[in-house]
Design a protein around this nucleic acid. Structure first.
Lengths: 216, 216
DNA sequence: ACGTCAATTGCCTTATTGGCTAAAATAAAG
DNA sequence: CTTTATTTTAGCCAATAAGGCAATTGACGT
């Protein structure tokens, strides 16, 4: 069974270098490469039969963090390993939050890269030791996590937040209606509006997005 | 320059096994071994000229976590790698908090153990990929750190966890089926079984329970 | 008084979900 | 090579969710 890989990097020389490293391994097939996140997403729309994406972070149009977020949302089964030149804390943490399954540095040798990919496929995480240390530090220092520039301002009304709170516990429309002394129709309308504002289309997405934005 | 190592483990057979693994490497010298934390601390009082301590967690008298804390307090320059049979989240997190520089599993092969030690000495962190994954999960989901104690043993199959992962991003049955190259019926059956095992009756509840139990 | 906006409710239609039963194909274990 | 567990598929049915459209109420500020 060959390993289906995609590479995303705005530097075509580096793409070539990575392909070179992977060329040593018979069971690795580079399906396609992209110069930025949007290009990758377009290709995934066509065909998402991939095992691993090797992703750069600094890219124009759509960077590696945002791309990771989108890909993980739509195709959680595809493993994503960040493969980047820099290893500053913010990048690392954001990549992890976005759902990256590993974080390696570009100067990695072919064998380690291959091993990392295999281990990731087998349900582990590929990590450069220096990166691993940073994650340990982040864990020791939970304060450093709380956090940065985020969030477009999403303004939900008081009532909408109440509904969202109930939603987050897994209750059905009718039960929420009973709890808040409303008609089911009202609850549904509120939820409809919440979906609008959060730009989502289901309970789970709404709850998760709200949690990420600290609304609930 | 030889690497000065100490081993702490209450099982003398395992100490022997570790020494065996290290014996392949010329530049590694096992300075002394101890059967528990207090014994180690006593030896360090005499002489703390050490590079690395390989430390078990489960030990009588003074366990690996507490010992790590004390050693790191008194001799922060000594690197400590937890070398243990178990990899439950609580142990990992506590070891990290205590100041461990790495976390490996006992079934590790000699070469990886050696590499891990070298990388730790060079300012990185030694980490088993499965452990690395757990640290990532802990970072993504800081809440799961607290609620570690109360986990009834929930055993989901590999496939069920995959499905659950997809569920957690808010995808519908049909999309999950597409992503995993399954029929929607299969996905639905898996989800049904997941609900059984988790004792829940909806997507949201399943995802939340799974998160709390650090399954995803 | 007027416009705006949050909150409220209803109806209709389609899509998705959850529960139940049944069974075949694989994979893992002994 | 059986036994066992996992993975796979399907069809049926009731309940729930989601999206669109229309409309009423009350509070707020200008």
């Amino acid at each position: 069974m060959t390993l289906k890989v995609a590479i995303v990097d705005d530097n075509s020389f580096l793409i070539h270098a990575i392909k070179e490293k992977l060329s040593f391994f018979e069971d690795v097939a580079v399906k396609h490469t992209s110069l930025n996140g949007s290009e990758l997403l377009a290709k995934l729309e066509e065909n998402h039969n991939l095992d691993i994406i090797l992703m750069d972070i600094e890219m124009p149009v759509l960077d590696g963090i945002e791309t990771t977020q989108v890909v993980k949302q739509k195709y959680p089964q595809i493993k994503i390993i960040m493969l980047t030149a820099f290893d500053n804390d913010e990048n690392i943490f954001n990549a992890i939050k976005a759902g990256a399954d590993g974080y390696l540095l570009k100067e990695i040798n072919p064998k380690d890269l291959y091993n990392g990919m295999i281990e990731t496929l087998n349900g582990g995480a590929a990590m450069n030791p220096s990166i691993a240390l940073k994650t340990l530090k982040l864990l020791r220092n939970p304060l450093s996590i709380e956090n940065e520039k985020d969030k477009e301002d999403i303004s939900l009304s008081k009532r909408e937040i109440e509904v969202l709170e109930q939603l987050s516990t897994g209750l059905s429309y009718t039960v929420i209606a009973e709890n808040l002394f409303l008609s089911p129709s009202t609850v549904r309308k509120h939820i409809e509006n919440i979906y609008q504002k959060l730009q989502v289309h289901s309970k789970i997405e709404a709850v998760q997005k709200a949690k990420r934005h600290n609304i609930i």
